[in-house]
Simulated assay, not measured.
Amino acid sequence: MSLFWRIFLLNALVLAVATAVLLWAPVTVSVPILLTEAVVLTGGLIVMLLANAVLLRIGLAPLERLTRMMTTIDLLRPGQRLPVTGHGGIPDLLRTFNEMLDRLEAERSTSNARALSAQEAERRRIAQELHDEVGQSLTAVLLELKRVADRAPEDLLEDLGHAQETTRGSLDEVRRLARRLRPGVLEDLGLVSALTSLATEFSTHTGMTVRRRFPPGLPPLDREVELVLYRVAQEGLTNVARHAEASTAEVSLRRTADCVELRITDDGLGPGIVREGAGIRGMRERALLVGARLSIGPRPGGGTEVLLQVPVDVPSDAPSSGDRTPTGTGDRNE
């Protein structure tokens, strides 16, 4: 039965009951209407309106749930679906809405994969140009300043020394940017070494204490999964530096029964201080790319906790991927 006929029949039922009451009840209407008759008619009208409102509320409740879902749905948090309940055309409407969400999430995942792949390719290209073009140019400038300083008079040595230090600092910054854009250590030595290097660089650059916990036993991971874990850790530490006002952070990576967990915690202000922006949404998009679960919330004792859970399906005795070198890692703190 369509929604139109359901509403029509509900109203017809209310009117039929009211008509039957008027027909069989010992109630008459005088001209002019007496006060008691006006009270009875007004009470009957109120009862009909209330009955109609209750029946319509029950009949249209699934549509209200659909409206709330449509205003709050977020494709970066997949799996939100409405229960298919009700009668008439309402279950078909809810089922169609859920199928639409399935298609949108699949298309979003595909487009995200293409966009992130193009983004990583562009990062590699920019990092290569920074290293080959800007880095070599600054190195040439630094060597030229050294040759000029060797022949310069005494009163110019201090100025040339400042110019050399500025150029050397710019060269170090270019190299640091190139490493952030293209983590070569991730490709060469593996995820644990890359995260160790990231934490060390972050601590040196910000002055914050960064603890690392990387117990052995990680399963083999795809390059794509390793890159997602690295980028989420990178963005998580960046958010700590920008917003948390923390003095200590911790990066941990461990294996559980069915997934690999990356956890970034800090002792700062906690979540809710800053609105969710492009950085966190980028983390959610990367998590969706590998079917991972990302949660960001308060940390027990204060601060924020970022938890990324990447599902894995490997035998329990599979060899650990960890580093690509034979050196062990264990728990390490900095």
Rank of each mutant, 00 (worst) to 15 (best):
G88Y: 03
A152R: 06
L101T: 04
R124D: 01
I33T: 04
R124C: 01
G88W: 09
E37S: 06
A149L: 09
A51I: 04
A149S: 14
E129F: 00
P32G: 03
L93A: 02
A127I: 02
R95A: 12
L50D: 00
T67W: 13
A127C: 05
L116F: 12
L94C: 07
E107Q: 09
E107C: 02
D74F: 00
M69T: 05
N52R: 11
E144R: 15
L101D: 01
T67K: 10
L82R: 02
R81Q: 07
V84A: 10
T110C: 04
V47Q: 08
A152N: 03
D150K: 13
S111P: 00
M70V: 07
Q80G: 03
Q136M: 03
E64M: 14
K146G: 13
G86L: 06
Q80A: 10
R124F: 11
N98S: 00
A113V: 01
R57L: 08
L116P: 04
L143I: 07
A61M: 05
F97D: 01
R147W: 00
G44V: 01
A140S: 14
I58W: 08
L60R: 02
V47I: 15
M48I: 09
A38H: 04
M48D: 15
L49R: 08
N112S: 06
D74A: 07
I33W: 11
L94N: 06
L157V: 15
L50C: 00
S117H: 15
T139H: 08
P32L: 01
T42N: 14
V134C: 07
P32W: 05
L145R: 03
L45S: 12
L34Y: 09
D74L: 03
G86F: 10
L82D: 03
S111G: 11
Q136P: 00
K146S: 15
L49Q: 14
D150L: 13
M70T: 09
